[in-house]
Design a protein around this nucleic acid. Sequence first.
DNA 1: CTGTTAGCGCCTTCAA
DNA 2: TTGAAGGCGCTAACAG
Lengths: 361, 361
Amino acid sequence: MAASTLTEVARLAGVSPATASRVLNGSARKPGKDIADRVRQAAESLGYVPNAQAQGLAKSSSGLIGLIVHDIADPYFAAIARGVQEAAREQRKMVLLATTGGGPAEEREAVAAFAARRADSIVIAGSRSCREEDHDGNTALAAELDRYCRNGGQVAVVGHPVVGATAPEGYHVLRVPNRELADRLATELAGSWDGDFVIVGGPEGLLTSDDRVNGFQEGLARAGRRPAEVLRSAFNRSGGYEAGLELAARIKAGRSAEGAADPKLCIFAVNDVMAIGAAAALRSEGLRIPRDAAIAGFDDIETLRDFRPALSTVRLPLEDIGRLATRATGRGPAAGDAAEDAAPAGIAGEVTLRRSTETAA
Amino acid sequence: MAASTLTEVARLAGVSPATASRVLNGSARKPGKDIADRVRQAAESLGYVPNAQAQGLAKSSSGLIGLIVHDIADPYFAAIARGVQEAAREQRKMVLLATTGGGPAEEREAVAAFAARRADSIVIAGSRSCREEDHDGNTALAAELDRYCRNGGQVAVVGHPVVGATAPEGYHVLRVPNRELADRLATELAGSWDGDFVIVGGPEGLLTSDDRVNGFQEGLARAGRRPAEVLRSAFNRSGGYEAGLELAARIKAGRSAEGAADPKLCIFAVNDVMAIGAAAALRSEGLRIPRDAAIAGFDDIETLRDFRPALSTVRLPLEDIGRLATRATGRGPAAGDAAEDAAPAGIAGEVTLRRSTETAA
DNA sequence: CTGTTAGCGCCTTCAA
DNA sequence: TTGAAGGCGCTAACAG
């Protein structure tokens, strides 16, 4: 990795490295026009590319933003990543990507790696977990973040604070109103749906999933409905598919037992990808939506909008979320003091009822 | 960004920085067990995190892989990114992400930024363009890549070589058999479809799109079919949607003019996302697939597999593509000499006919 | 306004 | 095996 150095440029231009530095990079002092041109020309002819590592070392800041996601191929994270990218570009920084699969241990590793690279800030997307088995991992992650922040790093986490993080300075939490929105979704569905509700959730302890489950139950309760049964499975398409198979079996059983006019089921899957999986399962069992069962998701993933029947869901401004989280870490140590800045501009979702929960046959 | 330094650790452990370095990082020399423990303990208690920038500066290599995509939220790129991630992890490197929107100028910027950061290698995904308007941009991009490679960088580009790049050492091209596969798709479709074909392509000059268009035409020709008309629009969902509207109008016009038994159209959209857009347009115009028109895509995007009617398409191992491209840059300067390593393990796609092109009513 | 002198934190010869 | 010295490329204080 040998490239021409600032010193070489300076020599060619017949000036000191300091001067060359001043003209080639932003400095308060502005060198004379004549000399500046000579330097620029020398740089050009040598194909000089500043060494960001050296710059970083010298001014101890790297121009890097670390982004931690479960899986970059998941459209949910991909959308957030796009927002982060944009915000990074605004700040003239680059984004470093880490994919963890969701485990706190891997997240800790990622944070350490970012810290080692002296990333200016870290954005953590992806649900927190409070499962017992993740306890130690969370503690370690919290410690790592803590240290990173104490060393001047900025971190923003989407959704929930990292379990056990003792928010020093520079720790921002971008709250996402999952609970409230799920509540509202339940409310609206309860208004137009007479049958029972079932929730297809992720593993217990996944905070995002839990919020959506709980919110939904609350909405149901307020509407005077009885609580929905909760089926747990993986927080992805195949989890939804499995749950869907189970439900399909029940629906078919119930139907043959009672005849035709049985109470229809409305399935709430805690994210769109699971909802699609569940829908696929029902379909594979010969059931139709919304004829035999209604289904709703959460997130309003862009790629899934052309799905038929159109999926009722809750629209989340994923890109904005990424952007806002990133910005929260950008504005120097100004805006948010310590913990839990409530949604700055206010993350607002929107219940979006579509064909998949239409009650009309 | 102040953190404890190696020197501090060394002092606390009562050894020289050199020794501390040797124990904390992999070195040929192995320090005494006793001293090693002391150092490790000191490091632990100080919360020492090695400064990757300094390490990079010292040994001039950064452990970074740069990835350039048009748009990380596009599932095509997201899938490739996942593969790149995995390969990076194998190599114990991190990936730096750059989103360019597809313009050569922005790509050049990204390459320069990666070069500045001394990325060990760069992976460029996303179609090359040979449009006249991009000529200068391509030249500049080629020059930048050239310089990067001359300085010891490794670059892998997916699909086509960068127009004008004079492949020095370290320049790898991962060929994707778009043309062959499109050809095969046409062949298979021609076998089961009697009506005419129309191609919905991206802008002319987008190499990936052109390959697929040309390959498809070739397949058609070999099957004795007349060439398909080519509609050009943006290489994304909305491009497909627009083209779909146009086609819907034609179909409806043709139908009212001739009565019922008109020759049905089979639409080949050069990627899945466009196909979905086109399908949505047809549907919005009251047309049904495959009843009123057949449609096929390309890529076999995972998220779109649950789409109904199931989309006929060509399966591309996107994740492998990302992985292989990355690996090509990893194995030192060993494997590929200069240009165009033909697909190493052989990128193999697969024509996948599904419901959307079924001929049976 | 320019050049000189020190480091930034680490690795790597070279002696010891 | 360990320590001391020099340098990676650049910036930031000082001098001139």
